[in-house]
Computed example of a mutant assay.
Amino acid sequence: MSLASALYIVPTPIGNLGDMTQRAIEVLTAADLIAAEDTRHSRRLLDAYSISGHLWSLHEHNERARSAAIIERVQAGQIVALISDAGTPLISDPGYPLLRACRDAGVNVIPLPGPCAAITALSAAGLPTDRFSFEGFLPAKSGALNSRLDGLAKEPRTMVFYESPRRVLVTLTAMIEHFGAEREATLAKELTKRFESVVQSTLAGLIDWLEAEPERQQGEFVLVIGGYQVPEGEGLPAEAERWLALLIAELPLKKAAALVAEMYDVKKKLVYDLGLKLQGR
């Protein structure tokens, strides 16, 4: 297999080694350099596929310093692969400063499709998938956590979060405070691994499930939370009103109302009537 000189973004399994794609194996085998989040973790993965590539650590503390050297290697004709500890690089993992530097330098970047915990969980959540928001890990400090969740309380799209075992109950409890106990939610635990669980319930139901057996609180979690639904007779979310005010300054009211209604999954007449009020009609 002949590969072009480039930085390759290579997803790796999130648990089950059988999810490694043939193309990912071919790229890693051919790579002159493999930039990895944790070289010890990645060496075990590479050994499983008899890949003896040269590993460089690339994490949040050295990424900016090493980006220039990686770019020089690609510009010199080498093949460089970027991997994370699990899943698709850059999705709540290091890589953005490197990719931004590659873009600024005009370096060829080739992404490979593959495993991603967020998409895997979303596909099984039983919640709307036509529009969703990936939120990654929430802040650890309570003030920042509550501020972020307050800003998402009326987000109409399905939301996807990552969470650690030691914080999952704290996060779900905070979500109840801001989203309500009956908000639809799905918890995906240890995806693709031996003790995989996908639990569809409400926020309160997920807490009950986790507390029923303490060992359920172990592992890696993806939380998929249903978006805010405007109750019958209630007005639009403040964010939707702001969008409508901006759009009707540039577009005919009918078109602006249709766009906002689609964005927030509400009745077009509700938006149109508000637009009339904003225009003073």
Rank of each mutant, 00 (worst) to 15 (best):
A185H: 05
G235I: 08
L149V: 09
A36E: 02
E60C: 07
Q218T: 13
S52A: 15
I34P: 01
L90S: 01
R242M: 13
S2I: 13
Y49L: 13
A238D: 15
Q218L: 14
P111I: 10
A117M: 07
A185P: 06
D19N: 08
L90W: 01
I51Q: 10
A125L: 10
E232Q: 15
E262N: 15
I207S: 10
E232D: 15
G15T: 14
P237Y: 02
A256W: 00
D85L: 00
F195V: 13
S197Y: 07
E211L: 12
A4V: 15
L58W: 04
L55Y: 02
E220P: 05
G205F: 11
I110K: 02
I91T: 10
R131H: 14
Q75G: 13
R148Y: 07
L33G: 07
M175W: 02
V109K: 05
I25P: 12
V198W: 06
V170Y: 03
K277C: 05
T171S: 12
S197N: 12
A258D: 02
R66G: 02
G226Q: 00
K154P: 02
A258M: 00
E163L: 06
G233M: 13
V27S: 09
L187C: 06
T39G: 06
V199C: 02
E215V: 15
A24N: 10
R157G: 05
A245V: 13
V224D: 06
L82T: 04
E184Y: 12
A124I: 05
L82F: 03
L122S: 00
I83K: 06
A105H: 10
A188K: 03
K255V: 12
L278C: 03
K154H: 12
Q75M: 12
P13Q: 11
A188G: 11
I9S: 02
L58F: 09
S142Y: 04
H178W: 09
H178P: 01
K193C: 09
A140T: 14
P94F: 01
L247C: 02
